[in-house]
Amino acid sequence: MRFLKVRNMDINGFLFVFMLSTIMLNLVISLYGVFARPSLIKKIIALTILSDSGNVLAIAVGFRDWPSGWSPSTPPVLNVTSPKASDVVSFARVAVDPLPQALVLTAVVIGLAVMLFLVFLTLQIYRLYGTTDVRKVAKLKG
């Protein structure tokens, strides 16, 4: 029964892991949407949910647990413009990881731009073939 004992967690850890598992189930469901639904528009919607779930997972990996029940971890933004050495040390002790946030930030905007390109491709397919159903598009010759 080692499987059940890997972590002895409190209620907070349980809630966090519950949130992570819902995000992972979102990944699975949206992947089903991408490869099993026939409509190209539905595929675009599912693809967006897939990439967003990946983004949430990346942010969650960079998250820092609250140091105690009453003091939260903080966003990676210093709140003074001319800090003393002690300010920087106490900031680095509570702030979350800024690197996943920076990567996700560009991924969201670039993801939208690529999604717009897919929208135009779908529009062109509809103009040429008169349908957005992949099964019908596959049956057409030429």
Binding site: V56, I59, A60, F63, T74, P75, V96, Q101, L105, V108
Partner: peptide
Amino acid sequence: LMAPDIALV
């Protein structure tokens, strides 16, 4: 998850 930048975008 303490990511106000991402929430804003």
